[in-house]
Amino acid sequence: MHSTPEASEAKTFEFVAFSAGSQSYCLEITQIREIRRWAPVTALPHTPSDVLGVMNLRGAVIPIFDLAARFGLGKTPDNERNVVIVAAAGGNTIGLLVESVSEILSVNTDTIQQTPDIKSEATRNSIQGVIAVDEEMIRVVNLDAVLGADAGLAA
């Protein structure tokens, strides 16, 4: 993953695009383990509202985060199309609840633009860059930053 579009050697990366809080996001495909249909999870006490709970992934207990809530876009409403993206972040396996998964993008690194210099530092950190696809702007999620210290994740 490169947030530097100046990279001399342009390479093609694949991203999975999805929508959360009615916005378009994407994650690099190598970070994603699998995509599952949403199923009720076991709630965890004493956790922030964006931590939905834990679910059983073939015997492993993984926490599920509501990505929209995490970005401050409000809780993801219940919907049949909701899916959980199981991803690896910093040695942990976690799940992200998103509204829907749309497509797989093949993107040349030099078409990834730097995150516009917006005010919110938290946002700047959690978005690695943006990709313009047709009329849409797709935000590249920096998973490690999103699940940073305050996520409750053990180091």
């Binding site: 834990v54 207990v61 409750g152």
Partner: peptide, 17 residues
């Protein structure tokens, strides 16, 4: 016993899952 700490962290009052 499945550890909660391996993928999430400690939760007061809960030892594991």
């Amino acid at each position: 016993i499945k550890s909660l700490e391996s993928n999430y962290g400690r939760i007061p009052g809960v030892s594991a899952a």
